[in-house]
């Protein structure tokens, strides 16, 4: 088996969101970034597989330099190598442009057996990047994967769909997005590795290091574009009642009766 790659993303701490007033893209470089919560199960799965199969684990993050602490956190969990994909030219990338950068970085890390990502980020919430990256790499992808192991040199995955769970056998390499509920327990970082990583820095790859086509990067390389924004103005339209809990509940019951939801 070859190395495992896990992709992680820095997302704004809720409440610290800053948005470019012109492009409406998030200004990640000037925000407090936290690890995308949905990436935690992806990291957990990656570390478990690394330990089970004794194999190199690489973490990649695309973003401004303020994602470095997140890569270091991944190191403390058990990642062997940290790679930061950072370039002004990447700013404002939509999912196609993002997947292009990730796919090229993953190619540079070849050979690999597996790429893991979180199901979706809590900011964009598109869930598109894992399958889109796999498509650009021309390898299979599975989404919402809750368990994964190797048997006879093939991956066996359990993926969740609306109707239930499928057990899928895949000839690798493979890209998986990991189900947010894949694990009951997620390990904390190791103290020893936290100390160790203090003196380590990620490798930084810019557009030039990956020989990227500048026409496919950032806002101008993104086919989906914001053309207009509309502020939602909300006007008070109904009755607002204040009072004791007892009174409010009486009123609520009265309305529920009026609407025939409960009998008199």
């Amino acid at each position: 088996m070859e190395k495992i790659i896990v992709c992680i993303k820095g997302v704004p701490e809720p409440g610290s969101v800053k948005v470019d007033p012109e492009t409406h893209a998030l200004k990640r470089e000037s925000m407090e970034l936290i690890l995308n919560p949905n990436d935690r199960p992806a990291l957990e799965m990656a570390v478990r597989l690394k330990n089970d199969y004794n194999i190199e684990l690489v973490a990649i993050s695309m973003g401004p330099p303020n994602v470095i602490p997140l890569l270091k956190h991944a190191y403390a969990l058990g990642v062997d190598q940290m790679i930061l994909l950072s370039d002004r030219a990447f700013a404002g990338s939509d999912t196609l442009a993002t997947s292009y950068v990730l796919a090229e970085a993953i190619k540079k890390l070849s050979p690999f057996s597996l790429v893991l990502m979180g199901l979706k980020s809590i900011d964009g919430e598109t869930a598109q990047v894992p399958p889109e990256t796999a498509s650009l790499l021309d390898i299979p992808s599975l989404t919402n994967v809750k368990s994964l192991f190797m048997k006879d040199n093939k991956w066996i995955a359990i993926r969740e769909i609306e109707y239930g769970e499928e057990e899928v056998e895949v000839e690798g390499p493979l890209v998986c997005s990991v189900s947010p509920t894949a694990f009951e327990y997620i390990r904390p970082p190791s103290l020893k590795r936290l100390l160790e990583v203090k003196n380590k820095e990620p490798i930084v790859w810019q557009a030039g290091d990956l020989n990227l086509d500048s026409q496919k990067l950032g806002l101008k390389g993104s086919p989906t574009q914001v053309v207009e924004v509309i502020e939602k103005k909300i006007e008070t339209k109904g009755i607002i009642l204040e009072g004791e809990t007892e009174e409010l509940v009486e009123k609520l019951i009265e309305v529920l009766k009026e609407k025939a939801l409960i009998k008199n």
Binding site: V17, L26, D123, G124, E125, V229, I230, K232
Partner: peptide
Amino acid sequence: TYGENIIAK
């Protein structure tokens, strides 16, 4: 869009 009270077209 995320974090703003706006609809993006």
